[in-house]
Design a protein around this nucleic acid. Sequence first.
DNA 1: CACAACTAAATTGTGCGCAACTCAATGATG
DNA 2: CATCATTGAGTTGCGCACAATTTAGTTGTG
Lengths: 160, 160
Amino acid sequence: MSSSSTPAASHPPLASDVDLLRLDHQVCFSLHAASRAFGGVYRDALKDLGLTYPQYLVMLVLWEHGPQPVKVIGERLRLDSGTLSPLLKRLEVAGLVARERSAEDERSVTVRLTEEGLDLRERALPVPLKILSATGLSVEEVLSLQRLLGRITTSLDQAH
Amino acid sequence: MSSSSTPAASHPPLASDVDLLRLDHQVCFSLHAASRAFGGVYRDALKDLGLTYPQYLVMLVLWEHGPQPVKVIGERLRLDSGTLSPLLKRLEVAGLVARERSAEDERSVTVRLTEEGLDLRERALPVPLKILSATGLSVEEVLSLQRLLGRITTSLDQAH
DNA sequence: CACAACTAAATTGTGCGCAACTCAATGATG
DNA sequence: CATCATTGAGTTGCGCACAATTTAGTTGTG
């Protein structure tokens, strides 16, 4: 928010606005593109399991932390009920999870894995290595990428 | 499986399957989360312009390269007609672009900016700096992130 | 010339992401 | 105790991503 008291503020270009537009284009595009490229590889790797990429994320959370309310899943994945409700319904229809109202708090719905959902974990074990090798990165590079992305996400979330 | 490793531990621990599942979770999640966090900040920055994030990408391409066929836009952004056709229709309704069939090749549709679309560039100039500062990164870090993401995307696209 | 193969857009259908809203249960306040 | 604000899920609506299909125009081959 710059104070522009003058109507036709002549603003001397810094690194040239055009360059910044280009840089911006490339930053947002490269992240966008990488995210979608991951999506494509996950789609292949998860086809056998009958899972989409976000559904796989939910399953990972359930495999790792066990039964938990929708709210907690949403916090872990930063997804709201508008996304999770229909997604969980699909997982339920697929027979992988069960949902039941909590006894203490009738507003809360606890999501738990079914036998089938638990069993799916075995078949999901080869997935991470497939993805890792598809990236062409070393484990160290992946970890540093993670850290960088984490920093960015934190900053962006604060700005938002 | 590999959980019977000896605690001799003169070497760095190799990732167990469980660790790989966790790592995978974190990698895909952090990229997914970062992409969505960017989306949120762009949403704010572009609200005044009446553009969504992908629409902004299309406008950037048009601002930079001028009139071009849908196919070329798709190649630059790695988007297919299933995404671009309705998106371009919305930009057309908004009065920012015009579409016309090419004379030489009747299959091709050339997209060009309207006066209004060209003028919008001025108002878009502040956006990149807003985004850059929201990331909390230096220009150098952004550039190296871009290179890394580019490498990943290339690898992933080849695997796909 | 006729016909098959190919190409560019558009369309259809499914799922995700998110804002805005509804609804029921809970908690807080007077 | 009655009322109001808050909370957790769910629903609706819009836009994007992508696979699969359709349509129309182009190119290649006999």
